[in-house]
Design a protein around this nucleic acid. Structure first.
Lengths: 215, 215
DNA sequence: ATTACTAGTAGACGAGTAA
DNA sequence: TTTACTCGTCTACTAGTAA
């Protein structure tokens, strides 16, 4: 798999909109012959990392979902390499649809008033669920769950305790909440924020997002 | 240049402390024969991207400054690819020694009181100067200089206006300040913060740092 | 155990050229 | 002009093995 060529195409913008590029032009970018450049483009197409439309005067190159995912994996790898330096920690993953449980729990007064007090915002009643990439799972494990949420009992039942840490997605500050259960999947995070993140960021299911750990 | 192998070594932590790794082990990581693994390590050493100490039962691998710089360049490339998505913007570069002008200007009451008022902190009298990488220069151009600093006149002379934007380096929030001059180098940024960043982050000249644009 | 040489082979390359 | 085939060459691989 020729990640270097795929990266070059992305730097030329092929991940955003179809890119007009002849094999001769690409050859100058990757410092090779026209034949090698054409062969590499063909190979990337065969691997379904890009899609091409061959035109009389060149080709129109778009990056596939699979291609973009591979580059995001690379980004995540490099962020992982340098995140240990105490700089910026970023969790990467894809948005998924949760079970809707989040909405119920967040709305409970016993939890809600703690969020307002400890996080400084009144959470939108709903969570954004994200399935983390492999590297991000490891990063997540190292994050101190610094803010504790207490359990409570109402007349009917007992609600367990949990913890959270602050994050930012794009321009919104929120928090990742983790119930303190024994069997909670480690590859999924639930994010709360003062606004409906899904609407605010115009997210569809399966969108890749970066969640930045703050404070 | 075998970036993929260099990256693997970094993921195994060779950029932080010397890594014990035999060629057989490395072969399993890069999915090759022991011979190829050994040859690749030798090649990386010849390019001065890693340094090795051959031991009777393996080798001790450290990444050189040059090797780490190449990986940081890669990180920056990938951040550039995905920064257009409106997510997290990070400026990468190397710390350099400025002319010491910053210290003089920041200390002037006409500017200082504006920083306190508009940025919310009393700046340490001195700037951290950073020479940006090529990609970061482009990112920087897209950043809105949202906070305006007015010029003023004292009895002797006139001091020009400028602008800034908020940034975070590691755990410190500060700001990049830009005087509104016609000929200001585009590859250098000057950062102010409530503390002496150079001391707080234990920075030497030429250290690679990531500056995250916030708000 | 290791590292790393030599030998044989498989895969990648550029040149020429067809479509 | 393009893309992409064939062909000869050269680099990079694995296996065997020395140190």
């Amino acid at each position: 798999m020729d990640i270097s060529s795929l990266k070059k195409l992305a730097l030329l913008g092929a991940h955003q909109k179809p890119l007009e590029l002849s094999s001769v032009e690409f050859a100058t970018y990757i410092d090779s012959s026209q034949q090698t450049a054409a062969r590499k483009l063909k190979a990337l197409e065969d691997e379904k990392l890009i899609s091409r439309k061959i035109l009389p005067d060149g080709q129109l190159i778009s990056m596939t979902k699979k291609g973009i995912e591979i580059l995001q994996k690379e980004l995540n790898d490099y962020q992982g390499i340098f995140s240990g330096n105490g700089n910026i920690r970023i969790l990467s993953g894809k948005t998924i649809t949760g079970l809707g449980e989040g909405q119920y729990y967040i709305s409970l007064e016993g939890y809600r008033k703690q969020f307002i007090e400890k996080l400084g915002f009144d959470p939108y009643p709903g969570t954004l669920n994200v399935r983390l990439d492999a590297n991000s799972i490891d990063i997540r494990k190292k994050i101190a769950q610094s803010i504790r949420i207490s359990g409570f009992t109402d007349q009917n039942r007992t609600f367990g305790k949990g913890s959270c840490f602050r994050v930012r997605i794009s321009d919104i500050e929120g928090a990742v909440i983790t119930p303190e259960r024994t069997h909670y999947p480690e590859d999924i995070i639930e994010i709360i924020a003062p606004v409906n993140l899904r609407e605010h960021l115009e997210l569809k299911d399966g969108t890749n997002i970066n969640v930045e750990v703050i404070k």
